[in-house]
Design a protein around this nucleic acid. Structure first.
Lengths: 256, 256
DNA sequence: CTTGACTCTCACCTTACGTCATACCTTACC
DNA sequence: GGTAAGGTATGACGTAAGGTGAGAGTCAAG
């Protein structure tokens, strides 16, 4: 029966000596025996177990999870693999959106397509909420607007409350930024974040184009519904109009 | 000019107080002033900077990277974003292969398609290397076999040496496992790892089907070329035959 | 007997915070 | 003016998976 020292086993398996020390310490892989001088000596069985450990480690399982899997032969391996795959998938989706955000940010930087708030405000007629809503309906169709409205209603009390808190929050931030300026790119970033946060609220809308429309439409709705124009408790129509413009701009230029 | 305490700012930006303490400590975001009682007070400028920090943090930049970006206005932001995107892409690709591996592992477990080494050895005629090679040629065509051979030659001394080391390594492990058994699934895992490692060596072959063929062909080549049948310096034709079988099995059943 | 290679244990460092512990400060209320 | 509640400060420890030494003991070869 072959025996391996730490270094031999480490080289064989392509890991560091420290790693074996650690695995011993946490009980994941203990040496077959210790010599008189407390040297660790591993046998074939340990090599085998180490291979299994490395296999699961390559799949990004945590050492704790690996220990659970290996120590319990009745472990539901398939289930563990499935759920691990789900975790991997959501990681991947997150990375996907990150890359998309980077793309739009790069594009924005390259084309110097930054939104100054002069731009945002210029040409904005001071009309009433109803007018905006009707405008939105003629532009995007009653269907879209009503779908958004229905979705808002379907949120229920809690969801609506949450949305309101979120809106007040971003409102406060954006206003502070707009006063401070001059880095208006930040405003764009905030809108992007807002879009990202809000997106989950209308899971029903599927295509990206429709999402962009819905997002812009939501901006119109914000103007229409004064519950969303409250900033720290009091109405702020200027903010609402600004937000509407910014959201439409974002939808048109960034959501393709 | 508005002032914010730690808690106010934390709530506004959606982070914890501890986070602000940390950012202060590492110099990423220092409060505008400290009160007599050393309370941290932040102004609009700090809120702005915090927003920027959070934006980059959402993109998975490290705090150090963020500090570099924010502290140097001449920083090549676009370049940083591009390279960050590359890193994200490779992460994503890695996850992709992980999920694929999980899929095949699950499939293997479900269909109990595990390779016993009786299976592997049974019906294996004890023929010579040349015979194997010729067999490989008639099976997969001279083109495939020669392409593999050429690729091997093109590796140059170093590449070939590396490949040999790799081969001896896996040979040692596999033989140990086969003797130990009885978990033959491990052998499958090892073959999968081997395939994964080796794959980079023939970047020219494009389609998955062709890669599977090339991989199986490589198994035949191992038998044909005794340089690959060395285990710790001495020839080991049994291993070569085993490996050939295993690789073909893997290519046929796992690489689709 | 000494050198060099190997091994042991201990312990601090990494990231981006969370979670106490202890002590001080501010504000509201009586 | 006292007290209770709650905000704040600093410091320290813990997380995952090891990296990187420090200081000391062990082993085989020359």
């Amino acid at each position: 029966m072959k025996q391996y020292s730490v270094k031999q086993l480490a080289k064989l398996a392509g890991v560091s000596v420290r790693t074996l020390h650690l695995y011993d310490q946490i009980g994941l892989l203990k040496p077959a025996i210790r010599t008189e001088a407390r040297y660790r000596m591993y046998g074939e069985a340990e090599l085998l177990r180490l291979q299994q450990i490395l296999f699961y480690k390559e799949l990004d399982f945590s050492l704790q999870a690996i220990e659970d899997i290996l120590n319990d032969p009745h472990f539901d391996l398939i289930q563990a693999l499935e759920s691990h795959k789900l975790a991997l998938r959501s990681r991947q989706e997150r990375i996907q959106t990150l890359m998309a955000t980077i793309d739009t940010t790069i594009h924005r930087l390259k084309t110097k397509q930054m939104l100054s708030h002069e731009e945002l405000y210029e040409g904005l007629p001071k009309e009433t909420a109803k007018t905006y809503r009707n405008e939105a309906i003629t532009k995007y169709g009653a269907e879209t607007v009503e779908a958004s409205e229905n979705h808002l209603r379907n949120l229920g009390k809690e969801g609506f409350q949450q949305l309101k808190v979120e809106m007040e929050d971003i409102a406060t931030k954006l206003i502070a930024m707009m006063q401070e300026d001059p880095h208006s790119a930040i405003v764009q970033q905030q809108i992007a974040r807002h879009y990202h946060n809000i997106r989950g609220f209308w899971g029903t809308v599927q295509s990206p184009d429709l999402q962009a429309e819905a997002y812009a439409g939501l901006g119109d709705l914000y103007v229409a519904d004064e519950r969303f124009t409250l900033v720290e408790g009091k109405a702020n129509p200027e903010y609402a109009q600004f937000l509407q413009q910014a959201m439409r701009y974002f939808a048109d230029t960034q959501l393709k």
